[in-house]
Design a binder for these strands. Sequence first.
DNA 1: ACACTGATTAACT
DNA 2: GTTAATCAGTGTG
Length: 208
Amino acid sequence: MNKAMKQRLPRSFFEDYTPRVAERLLGNLLVRRLSGEILSGKIVEVEAYRGEEDPASHAHGGKTARNLVMFGEAGHAYVYFTYGVHHCLNITTEKKGQAGAILIRAVQPLTGIEGMRRNRGREELHDLMSGPGKLTQALRIDRKLNGEDMITSQRLYVTRGTGDRFTVKASIRIGITLGHSFRWRFFIDGNPFVSRTKPRSPESITTA
DNA sequence: ACACTGATTAACT
DNA sequence: GTTAATCAGTGTG
């Protein structure tokens, strides 16, 4: 455990153009503390959602009770419940007033793997956090954490990765019907914990 | 390997 | 009343 592994990303990291932050978030570590146990992993897949010009964003169409945190200060958790079944974790971005968030889509498990297995009720390493709904279940993240300040929180935060090199690829976002003109899904090329290796439709995957 | 579907609820029209 | 930034199980080839 060296110092670099424990260094948190500062708020200024998130106060920027969302797709850029999303791409740079890859390779950093998502950390969840649960009663003394530390569950963590490497962020390997994300998607950017940004304000008014993005028709796929929850913030498209203005503020509501649900999306309010997307308009607030960068570096907070935006957690929503969807399909009546799953929670999804985002981290807010941009200057206050400009809506933006990054959906964490997949994480490669590093520490606390037994805890993740308990939370998921599954054994396979590849099945623990290789999807946005899976990782919130593995890390026990629900709407009680909506609005959590991930820059100062002791329960949920991001630390700097080890700086290993990798290729970032970009594609259209998954599971949306609008906004296909944006290639705002970013993932680590070749990483086996990415949620979908194969494109669903003739989707062009490019090097970012 | 791939397609299809039920689950189950909150937000919004 | 409809839809949704999903997942797991089932069925078919």
